[in-house]
Amino acid sequence: MSGVDEYVPCATEMRAYATAFVTRVTARNRLPLDYSVRSLRVVDFLIDGLRKGGADQDRARDTLCGLGAYVGEVLVRRAGAAWVDLDAGQRAVLGQPVGVRMPDGRIWNPLGKVLNRFEAGSPDESLQTFCLTLHGRTRRPAA
């Protein structure tokens, strides 16, 4: 996402941003976005639907950003991660202003993973698989 800083809140605002996104998208649709790891299958489905519907990245920017915030918030709630503002070097590598730090100190890029899924359109870029195979997470009960 070029100019992503215009659209992505800082780390301290990401939980509220993700919550507002979920409230907005579930108000019209009965989507099971409950911050569980299994709900990431719905995220995969939504991203695939955007692609099949012909959306380009610019038109889908807000939705992709919201889905990335949601994926990150799942990692925060279920894998022991914490939202962090990325430094200039991390931003250059990851292409995003925020990420999540896992309990073992690793930084992951949920916003970038959502973009990869959208751009590739491949099951190999599954967000659910990403979360299930993520290094550095703590195990918490699934909701």
Rank of each mutant, 00 (worst) to 15 (best):
L33Y: 08
R91E: 05
A18Q: 03
D87W: 10
G66W: 01
R77P: 02
G66H: 04
A60K: 09
D58P: 00
G53K: 04
V93Y: 10
P32M: 08
M14E: 11
D58Y: 03
A92V: 09
T26I: 11
L134F: 07
L132Y: 04
L64Y: 03
T12S: 13
G95R: 13
G89Q: 14
T129I: 14
N109W: 08
G80R: 12
A69S: 10
L115G: 12
R106S: 09
L33K: 01
V100R: 02
Y70R: 06
G72H: 03
D87L: 04
T133F: 03
D104T: 11
I47C: 06
T138D: 11
S39D: 12
A79W: 06
L127T: 15
V114G: 05
G54S: 14
A11N: 03
G112F: 09
G53A: 11
D34K: 04
G49Q: 14
L94W: 04
P103W: 01
E119K: 13
G105R: 13
R30D: 15
A20G: 00
Q90T: 08
R59F: 04
V74G: 04
A92P: 00
V25L: 06
P141K: 13
V74T: 00
V84Q: 10
G121L: 12
T26V: 14
A60G: 03
G95N: 05
P141I: 15
V8F: 00
L50N: 06
S2M: 08
C65Y: 05
V100Y: 05
G68P: 02
D62Y: 09
L50R: 03
P103T: 04
R101G: 03
R38K: 02
N116V: 15
R106F: 00
L31R: 06
L115R: 15
L127M: 13
S36Q: 05
V42M: 05
A79F: 08
Q128E: 15
L86W: 08
A55H: 14
